[in-house]
Design a protein around this nucleic acid. Structure first.
Lengths: 238, 238
DNA sequence: CGATAGTTTGATATCCTTCAAAACCTGTGG
DNA sequence: CCACAGGTTTTGAAGGATATCAAACTATCG
């Protein structure tokens, strides 16, 4: 039974048994944390590297005018900036959305693993590039796509990412966001989120309730979103 | 006379004479290219690492519906993804906007320098983090800021970045964009760009003509943009 | 079982887009 | 040096997507 970290990185680069073992050892000792835990404070100096093993977290920033922007989500297997400790301060916060399990890894420990295991280093570099590609897609969404398309794009992204780490059951997966969160990630008011969601439900494209998302019509969703899955750079192997 | 690369990285990390020399050597042999040269094609496998020494370039993507999104700008001293060669294909293109001067660096050569010079490695990692922070700010702009604020934020960003590499003359600097480019970077129609610019000109905040930008009232601009310059992580040194 | 967070509805306002066309540059060839 | 072509900027009018404001309704959790 692989950890989500191994699953994720293995989706990028072929890992040996040794690589996988080394990665598993990075996942201990883990710590269980309640929902809404702030993992990282804006302005704080990042010390350790956080690795998320269970639950969802989000990067978020409160703007001077009081509005909130969510800048990305972390799901199991995701790491909160492998190089963050280089900078003197975080320019955004990171919050757990649901109960979660987390490991803290010291930069030295991480460095040792990267030096020992070239494939692991490669996989992490790959993963960083994908994070950036995701951010670019979010920018495109915010700047060029309609509310429906944005939302569709986001749902598909999270579906594929959850699938990569083995956390989907067909079209279904845990999705611990409120409509307010959705608004803050897509740059829409919760009111408009609600109306857009209703349309999608009415057309039988997705259903989303009680913190679970079900993708009912992936093709229609991809069409709405103009979705080009290549940006996630997930390798289909075997 | 330092190259823009040394200037930029020196704004992040204190570099030794040896570090600087090594970086200067990366800047040769350079190649002069005409405006509108495509430096990198979408879908292409990235081979060498591009370093821009003169002129501006932009990352751009054409969406399935035909609209164009500019995803970022490269100015002298900027590098086009130090790790891009890891992926099999670019998910966006890179175009020169003006005449430019460019160096191509092989991944092996770059690797050698990074291994030899820890401070240089650190500076490049820092630089990558700043690129990501810039992208996050673009996302915030597109998703939460008004047309005026977006534009103001962008102008300030480019001003500070140009200043970091010594290419400003007070509030003035080269700015080789058309209003159409501005629209494609800010997610606005050129018509609205034009009207927003007129307001700013009328209020005496900026003036922009003949490929030169002049920041007339930086304080007002920062206020409009809700600008927090820390995200650029430029160190003010003695 | 009550309090609080989250969802839904309705009415109105606004920012930005779209469409259409004129005016203005900038550079190129005759 | 002028004329012309293409790209760029500017203007006007009208429409649409999303925001704002206000309030009811409904889950969820201690």
């Amino acid at each position: 039974m692989d950890s989500p970290l191994v699953r994720k990185l293995n989706g990028f680069v072929e890992l040996s048994r040794r690589d996988a073992l080394e990665l598993e050892s990075l996942c201990r000792p883990s710590q269980r944390l309640p929902a809404r835990t702030r993992l990282m404070e804006e302005g704080e100096r990042p010390q350790d590297i956080f690795l998320l093993l269970e639950g969802w977290a989000c990067r978020l920033k409160i703007l001077p005018n009081g509005s909130r922007q969510i800048l990305g989500y972390l799901i199991p297997g995701d790491i909160c900036d492998i190089h963050a400790y280089i900078l003197e301060q975080m320019d955004h916060a990171i919050d757990l959305l649901s109960v979660g399990r987390v490991v803290r890894i010291s930069p030295e420990r991480m460095q040792a693993v990267l030096n020992d295991r070239p494939a692991v280093r490669r996989a992490f570099e790959w993963s960083t590039l994908v994070d950036i590609a995701v951010l670019r897609q979010w920018l495109i969404s915010a700047s060029r796509r309609s509310a429906q398309a944005r939302m569709a794009h986001f749902f598909l992204e999270m579906w594929l990412r959850m699938r990569q780490v083995g956390l989907t059951d067909d079209g279904q997966f845990a999705f611990p966001l409120t409509q307010v969160h959705l608004g803050d990630t897509l740059g829409l008011t919760p009111i408009h989120v609600n109306r857009t969601l209703q349309q999608m439900r009415a057309e039988g494209i997705v259903s989303f309730a009680r913190k679970r998302m079900t993708i009912l019509n992936p093709d229609r969703l991809a069409e709405l979103a103009q979705f080009e899955p290549d940006y996630l750079h997930i390798q289909r192997r075997g």
